[in-house]
Design a binder for these strands. Structure first.
Lengths: 147, 147
DNA sequence: ATACGATCTCTAGCCACTTCAGGTTCAAGA
DNA sequence: TCTTGAACCTGAAGTGGCTAGAGATCGTAT
């Protein structure tokens, strides 16, 4: 049996081990159309080849970078059609970067507010005197930006 | 009709307007036990009073700060029982702050990686030469931390 | 032949809502 | 008083991106 056939014979657990993507997640990706349906063994079990390993690695990398599944679908479409312009790939990445930056900004303002709140009370006193409870009860004390 | 009765007569839409929490979300909070069941009109519509406004404002403020619903439930329990120690309120806040900081750290590393990727390609070329697609296809080029 | 781990399908659960369908109630204007 | 039409009601299903479980079948080592 040559290397190609070994690759062809790869069951889902091996694909999972190779890519670090859980078995259930691989089946989920197939279900939502990110990963093409592989061949099956006589007993109806999935058998993957080299192309699947590469595609799943691409998907995992993009997910690790936080791309939403729809974005990944679009990136895969570009990857599948090498003649297309990569303007769209650039746009998807920039949009995602933008999204990430917005999330960072929002979380930083939350961080500041939570620091302030947590610092006002170090525990021990009863809840009726607790500054955390009071602050949450009275929005007017709060410098937090409304979103 | 005095101020108290006006407050008593407040329907869900007015509560929504006052607190900035959507009508559906208010009903959801009631369903999951964050907000107590209000009185009803003869025609079975919800009628809220001052206490509901305050409690919902508390919930909204905490949600705006990103507290999970379970954390809010615990904070409300403390708020309802003023004799209890506020150690728990402090612990909840600190745990949440910790969570926020972890998220920030993760997003910052994503931001760096996305900047790097987006900079390698400004669009225009065909997808077969697109550095974004290539980078995603080849994890070994990537300095991104695995989580 | 048997045991046992890997795999199969299908379904439900997670969070914190949001949306929808199909009805009922309320308040203001004619 | 009647009529509109906006606001309200319930219950179920959908969202994203998986994860977990039940119960059956497959594959392979001994």
């Amino acid at each position: 049996m040559d290397a190609k056939n070994i690759a062809r014979a790869m069951p889902i657990g091996s694909l999972s081990d190779r890519t670090g993507v859980k078995v259930e997640t691989i089946r989920y990706y197939e279900q939502v159309g990110l990963l093409p349906q592989p061949d099956r063994s006589e007993g109806n079990q999935r058998r993957y080849g080299r192309a699947h390993v590469e595609r799943l690695a691409f998907i995992k990398h993009a997910r690790d970078l936080g791309f939403p599944v729809d974005g990944i679908r679009a990136l895969l479409r570009l990857s599948d059609n090498p003649g297309m312009s990569c303007d769209e790939a650039h746009a998807i990445s920039v949009a995602h970067l933008d999204d990430v930056r917005h999330k960072i900004a929002r979380l930083r303002s939350l961080e500041k507010e939570l620091e302030r709140i947590a610092a006002t009370c170090s525990g021990g006193v009863t809840a009726c005197d607790c500054a955390i409870i009071e602050t949450l009860a009275d929005h007017s004390q709060c410098s937090h930006d409304q979103h």
